[in-house]
Design a protein around this nucleic acid. Sequence first.
DNA 1: AAAGAGGTTAGACAACGTCCAAATCAGGAG
DNA 2: CTCCTGATTTGGACGTTGTCTAACCTCTTT
Lengths: 135, 135
Amino acid sequence: MKPDVVRILEEHGIQPSAQRVAVAEYVLHTTEHPSADRVWASVQENFPMISRATVYNTLHLFVGKGLLRELHLAPDSVLFDPNTDRHHHFIDEGTGRIYDIPWDHIEVSQASPLPGFQVDDYQVVMRGRRRPTRR
Amino acid sequence: MKPDVVRILEEHGIQPSAQRVAVAEYVLHTTEHPSADRVWASVQENFPMISRATVYNTLHLFVGKGLLRELHLAPDSVLFDPNTDRHHHFIDEGTGRIYDIPWDHIEVSQASPLPGFQVDDYQVVMRGRRRPTRR
DNA sequence: AAAGAGGTTAGACAACGTCCAAATCAGGAG
DNA sequence: CTCCTGATTTGGACGTTGTCTAACCTCTTT
């Protein structure tokens, strides 16, 4: 698995240091949407000496190189999403968990959004909770 | 304008104290999407002795009573929106300014969002910038 | 071996938000 | 009017998230 990650970093023009590989191994393979400190905690399990600043630096580097996307969905922290394909998000208000919704599951037709502006990106953000089981 | 605001508070089951009226006067009539500290700064111009804790308390109270909505669009702070009608948002990445997009300007058809979950709320979040003027 | 570039580190710092105990206020009862 | 009680406000301490900086490593080149 390690050489796999190294190749991905190099393909994106990132020098693969030991720390960056450690971060990448976790964050590129998770289906969660971890915060920076969550990433830090997880990476520390395999790489105890890594510093918080490095994790922040690395995550921002990855975002700049297109390996990750930042999500601003919750008040308390920025989340990172390894799924860089266009997709939407659903937030379970009960658990706080965030689910990806495939792009083609929702159709958005923008009749006339905002004159004078160009839309570079958009997504649908949904909030709800698990449907109670019928009794 | 003051009695107007008092009536609105009472209609929402909120005891209208002087501080709450001062906050409401600003935040219910702005078309910006101010952060809590932005609200604090503005209210202080008319009500110099108000404390930060009161502004935070009041804003959360208003959210709970349905007078405001919270937006989590930027990494640095929670924003408050006096427009409680359903609508979408456009974020100008150049200026950071946030614009409301009327609900009926965008049509969203959710074919199959997430089985087992109910959607309580959703909105489209768009990001872009002012279109460069043609030369 | 020395130099330079890029990467990492710990800790100080700043911004935003929460919490708490004490002080203050409002309004109803007497 | 005065007292009492509950609601509200206050300042400051505190916690969390994120940034910054200066020193330090590591690797490559010469």
